[in-house]
């Protein structure tokens, strides 16, 4: 295989926990702890995991919206982690992001056309928002160009998310990071956005990093899937492998927990469902060894003492001492 578009090696991010009058640092949240993966050209990597496991942080690190504590990010032949603020600004033409909350991610004082045009103007690709490329992109994303002069508050959630997508795609980036792009939308509107993302991928040949907590959505859109737990990737593989033949106990539990919209099947699944006990531990104080051991039904002594490495099993990479076969 040729050089992947994005390669992340041992990415780490610690947030300080600050307290008191002078904001002393009293501890650290290890939000992302040694994450490595690759995304090839035209590929969609789904990143799933429960709330707080570090999905959004990983996404922001890749774009350098946050600075990594350590680790390397290779994108499009550049070492993103070494670039200065000035240099990274230029790189953003090729890597864009769509946010979860379509209400919060659009500046209420700017018109739709100004919002979509901003990346072009910022990168000197257009002088103002009258550029024909802007209206074209607005229409491609399923909005009428007549609404270019309107303000975000006049649109519904789904329509705003289309604006967010148009803004991310206008510079024809090579990588688009989607941080839960449909989680805030109504169920009947999600499909519209998922289809739009599919169509655009076909048309422009982007790679997507698709962050989500909804496994059904991820299974629909991804070509490969990475499962995160407490700042680490516990399993990564092709969509088919992850969903049909999960190896990591956590992946298995996660998939089994998803309620299917099919009552007959649910009745069968219910009898075999793996219901995990307890909650995700705090990332400020993760368990030793395997981080999943406090909830894992297969945990043994070795799980508490030694951290499992991400090893190849079948077609996936799995971090577990006793993987399911």
């Amino acid at each position: 295989m040729s050089e992947p578009l994005l390669k992340v090696v041992n990415l780490e991010k610690k947030f300080p926990i600050q307290r008191g009058f002078l904001k002393r640092t009293v501890g650290q949240i290890h939000a992302v702890d040694g994450v490595s993966f690759e995304i090839g050209h035209g590929e969609t990597l789904g990143l799933v995991g429960e709330s707080g496991c570090g999905k959004s942080t990983t996404a922001r690190l890749i774009l350098r919206l946050l600075d990594p504590t350590s680790g390397e990010i290779f994108f499009n032949g550049k070492e993103i982690h070494t670039l200065s603020r000035q240099e990274i600004r230029k790189e953003r033409k090729d890597m864009q992001i769509v946010f979860q909350d379509p209400y919060a991610s659009l500046n209420p004082r700017m018109t739709i056309r100004q919002i979509v045009a901003e990346p072009l103007i910022v990168h000197g690709l257009a002088n103002d928002d009258a550029d024909p490329a802007v209206d074209e992109m607005i229409e491609l994303c399923g909005l009428s160009r007549e609404f270019g002069n309107r303000y975000p508050h006049e649109f519904s959630g789904g329509q705003r998310q289309r604006v967010g997508i148009a803004r991310a795609l206008i510079t024809r980036p090579k990588l688009v990071v989607l941080d839960e792009p449909v989680s805030a939308l109504d169920v009947s509107v999600q499909a519209q956005i998922l289809n739009l993302l599919d169509d655009l991928r076909e048309k422009f040949d982007f790679s997507y990093l698709f962050v989500a907590h909804d496994l059904s959505v991820v299974s629909h859109i991804s070509t490969r899937v990475a499962v995160m737990y407490l700042g680490k990737i516990v399993e990564i593989g092709s969509r088919e492998e992850i969903f049909d033949n999960p190896h990591h106990p956590y992946t298995k539990a996660l998939i089994s927990a998803v309620p299917l919209a099919n009552p007959k099947q649910e009745r069968i699944r219910k009898t075999t469902r793996i219901v995990l006990t307890g909650d995700v531990p705090s990332p400020a104080n993760p368990p030793s060894g395997c981080r999943f051991r406090t909830r894992c039904w297969k945990a043994q002594e070795v799980c508490a003492t030694s951290e499992p490495a991400l090893l190849k099993i079948g077609n996936s990479y799995v971090a577990c001492h006793f993987p399911e076969m």
């Binding site: 959505v217 299974s219 998939i255 998803v258």
Partner: peptide, 11 residues
């Protein structure tokens, strides 16, 4: 609605 939600079991 039922046809528009992605289903994990029918990838």
């Amino acid at each position: 609605l039922m046809r528009s939600i992605p289903q994990m079991d029918k990838v």
